[in-house]
Each structure stands twice: as C-alpha cells, then as structure tokens.
Computed example of a mutant assay.
Amino acid sequence: MITILIVDDHAMVRSGMRLLLGGKDDIEVVGEASDGDEGIRAAESLRPNVVLMDLSMPHGKDGLTAAAELKERMPETAVLILTMHDDDEYLFRAIHAGAAGYVLKSAPHEELLTAIRSVAKGDAYLYPTATKRLMNEYVERMKRGESTDVFDTLSEREKEVLALAAQGYANKEIAEQLVISVKTVETHKSNVMEKLGLKTRPELIKYAMKKGLLQFD
C-alpha cells in the first residue's frame, strides 16, 4: 500500500485529490496539510511513502523549501511536486530541492497515478515535455563547458555520508556523528550508490578518493 500525504493550501484541491486517490486499491491518503510547515510536521508524524506537494503556498514554507527540508529529514520519503507552474525555473529548482517527481495539475488523472506509483518505488517522474527540456538543458550545459557531473546532484548530507562511509565508519557511527537515525544513514547511502552507479564498497572508496573526500586524522 502506498501511503500519501497531500500538502496544498486549497481545501478543494486536497478534497479532490483525496477523492481521486481514495478509490485506488494500492493507495491510501493518510493525511493533509495546508502549508509547508504543517506538511513537514505531518510527514514526520505519519511517515508517508509519498508527499504530494504544491509549490505556491502563501503561508508558512513554500513547496520548494518544504521539499528540501523533507528530503534532509526523511530521505526515504518521496516528494512529488503537483503544481500549475509549467515553467523551467520551477522545474529545475524542484529537482535541485530533491523532489522525486514533477507533475502539472492540468495533467490527466492517469498521469498523476503513474507518477505516484513511480516515485513510491524509488523511480523519478517528470511529465514528458519536462524530460525533453532537461535533456536539452544537459546538452546546452555541455556546450557551455559547465559541469554535468552526477556528484553535483548529491545533497550536502549525502556527500557527508559518502565521505564517512568511505573512511570506514559503520552506519551507527555515521548516525552518531551527523545526529541522524541509522535508517536515515542507510537511505542516504543507498541513494548515493544509486545516483553514482556504484555497486560495492571498494567502488565507493575509489570514487571518494577520486573526489578528494577521504580525510584521515
């Protein structure tokens, strides 16, 4: 069962989403929130698989800020942005904030359901024209000589976990150093390995050495 938290400042949107998702056998809406601050509190309490997050919320934290904070606190939870903004700037900022997906409110219901199921199993989801834009942006960055290194997509916390893991610290020791849970460490490490295409610890150590992350006292 995929558990969902809906974060949107419009009660009618939340009701509509609950009605749509409530009829699916594999999806359960476990809560709602009207702004980013409330959404973060609800997510930490309910521990949903997916947070369906609006971008523009006038009160409290906006969707981008809340998404970034959620990914820092709960990396195992996927944040799916649901917005009316079909805009490159918002799209790239959402990805940078750690969102697992980006869907327009104008999209067909089936597309939203596909996106939810995709991010719930650990995949990323972008609506078709957004994927094309990202590909074009990647090509343009290469032409301009800008970085396309996957390492740049890691969050600062993921880089810290990568460095400590490469130095030989156990998950419990990393958790104590960074003041986070062991489960969070495990999730960060899994995300790092997946993003970087690494399969073994020796590969991780070799990569960390290449990036100059190994610092021994």
Rank of each mutant, 00 (worst) to 15 (best):
I116K: 06
G145D: 14
L91A: 03
D86M: 08
R141L: 14
T83H: 05
T153M: 12
K132M: 05
T131L: 12
E158S: 13
D149R: 12
E89Y: 07
F151A: 14
L162T: 09
F151I: 11
P128Q: 09
V179G: 09
L134S: 07
Y169C: 04
G168R: 00
V119N: 02
E173D: 10
H96C: 05
G98N: 05
A94N: 07
F151K: 15
G122R: 08
P108H: 03
L80F: 01
F92E: 04
L82P: 08
H85R: 11
K159A: 03
Y169E: 03
D149T: 10
Y169N: 06
D123M: 04
E89H: 10
A107W: 07
R157I: 07
F151P: 15
E156P: 06
M142C: 14
A100P: 01
A100Y: 04
L162Y: 01
L91P: 10
K132C: 06
L134Q: 10
E146P: 09
V179W: 09
S155K: 13
T114S: 05
Y125S: 05
A115N: 02
R93H: 11
E137C: 14
I174L: 04
A170K: 11
E89Q: 10
A130G: 11
Q177H: 12
K121V: 05
A163C: 07
N136K: 10
G98Y: 03
Q167W: 00
L154Q: 12
R141M: 14
V119A: 06
L162F: 06
R133T: 13
D86W: 05
H96Q: 13
A175I: 06
N136S: 10
T153E: 14
V161W: 10
T148Q: 11
N171I: 00
K121S: 02
A97S: 15
G168Q: 02
P128L: 01
E173K: 06
L113S: 02
V103T: 05
L178F: 04
L162D: 03
N136F: 03
R157S: 11
M135K: 06
I81H: 08
D86E: 12
K105L: 05
H96L: 09
H96N: 08
S118G: 02
Y102D: 12
R141G: 10
E137L: 14
Y138Q: 11
R117M: 02
H96I: 07
A130Q: 05
L154P: 14
F92K: 06
S155C: 13
D88G: 13
S147Y: 15
F92Y: 06
E110T: 10
V161L: 12
T148H: 10
L112E: 05
V139C: 05
N136A: 12
Q177F: 08
E156W: 09
K172V: 07
K143S: 13
R157H: 09
I174Y: 03
E140I: 13
A99L: 06
E156Y: 12
L164K: 03
E173Y: 01
S118A: 11
E137I: 15
E110S: 13
A175C: 00
G145K: 15
M84N: 06
P128F: 04
D149A: 11
M135A: 04
V119D: 03
Q167D: 03
G98D: 05
R157T: 15
E146I: 11
Y138L: 15
T114Q: 02
Y169K: 05
S118C: 00
A94C: 01
A94Y: 04
A166F: 00
